[in-house]
Amino acid sequence: MASPDALQYEAEQFLYHEAALIDQRHYREWLELFTEDAVYWLPTEEENPDTGHPTSIIREDREGIAKRIKRLEHPVTLTEVPPRRARHFISNVVARSLGETEIFVTSNQLVYSFRLGVQVQYPGSWEHTLRRVGGQLRICQKKVYLLGNDRALAQLPVL
């Protein structure tokens, strides 16, 4: 098992890499970061909504993420022409091992999104569950708790 420093470094580098793929709109490479059983989840509540029948801003499996990317890359998707430009800023990263193969990483992220003369900020708490698959880290769960996720929102950038 990696030392705490190495684990922290590896987790941070992974988050930077993932954010860069999204910000550069390399969505297919981003998709490759997810495991086959991955869940990508943006709840509408501030606390963990694991119980009951939560309504989610996004809750999808790998197939759903692939479909999302197909829409984003479609040549005449209204919300992407002209394209949205975004930058992720990442801080407060805390990584801890979950057994032999998984790492649980929490971070604060702030996404600046710019399109058609309007800039919007999306701050929140990100939770990644990463799994080592064939020597590479992959995302098996990604949860994003936006501040104000229970408010009425305009179209979201990829977070």
Binding site: S56, I57, R59, L78, T79, L156
Partner: peptide, 19 residues
């Protein structure tokens, strides 16, 4: 699930209408 995809700000239908 389909309703979320249609009506959510992170979905695929209402977002185009809003645009």
């Amino acid at each position: 699930r389909v309703t979320m995809a249609w009506t959510s700000p992170g979905g695929e239908v209402q977002v185009d209408d809003m645009e």
